[in-house]
Amino acid sequence: MLSVKNLEYKYRGAKVNTLKGIDFRIHPGEIFGFLGPSGSGKTTIQRVLIGLLKGYNGSITAFDKERRDFGRDFYEKIGVAFDFPNLYLKLTAKENLQLIAEYYQNPPKDFDALLDQVGLLPDKDKKVEGFSKGMKMRLNFIRSIMHNPALMFFDEPTSGLDPVNAKLIKDMILTMKGEGKTVFLTTHNMTIAEQLCDRVAFLVDGQISLCDTPYALKLKYGRKTVKVDFLSCGTPDTSEFELDQLSGNQQFLDIISYSEIKSIHSQDASLEDIFIKVTGRELI
């Protein structure tokens, strides 16, 4: 679906490349996450892939064709939602969708149904200037997918959303994946990445430092221990045990046999822990 080889990009007037030889491949029906702190090059790579930044070195192949050889028809096939709402503020939610929809060969037929999907149907005839950031982000999101694209680029898709609406958007992304759509997601939110992405790439200083499935990364970088919180003679206590030969660990067996257990957790590493461990950077 999307293949990137030795991608380099330098801004006009800059002394060094912002993207320094990036390689990755996204398969059809995959959600691929690009993770990194602010300034790591996440937005740059997205803007190069969607054609907003021209003059890259290396190769970007999308839909079996080099990116620079596409005309405007490329935008019939992709959907883009930026991390900030970009809408006609003086127009209503429905007008915002209708005007943009007319630029596509495959426009949606039922705008009310689209707005209903993101909980904006009751506000369809209200001007967007009165919307909260969350409402604007939901409208932004639905507008990006209304022409049924095969490949989508989402930049921080749940930014500014409350937990209920963030879940709504995450569920919609997963539904699209179920329909065979491909998603390129850039975020610094590791929880979102963990919940949605089939594979993630860590981007630091314009280079990919690690790329794998969240599960494989957690296995590789997590501590293979289990932590038990319990009450010992009425006093709260905590112990940690190696997972290997746990069934033969007498101390562990005594605790779970004779103490009141409050919680037991395996000590998986979070993606954030792994990121910090691998890159030495915090995600800000």
Binding site: I50, G51, L52, R72, D73, Y75, E76, I78, V80, F82, F84, P85, N86, L87, Y88, L89, I100, Y103, Y104, Q105
Partner: peptide
């Protein structure tokens, strides 16, 4: 309003 950015990613 960010519309110029968005129009750039439409046909």
């Amino acid at each position: 309003q960010g519309i110029l950015d968005y129009l750039a990613v439409t046909p």
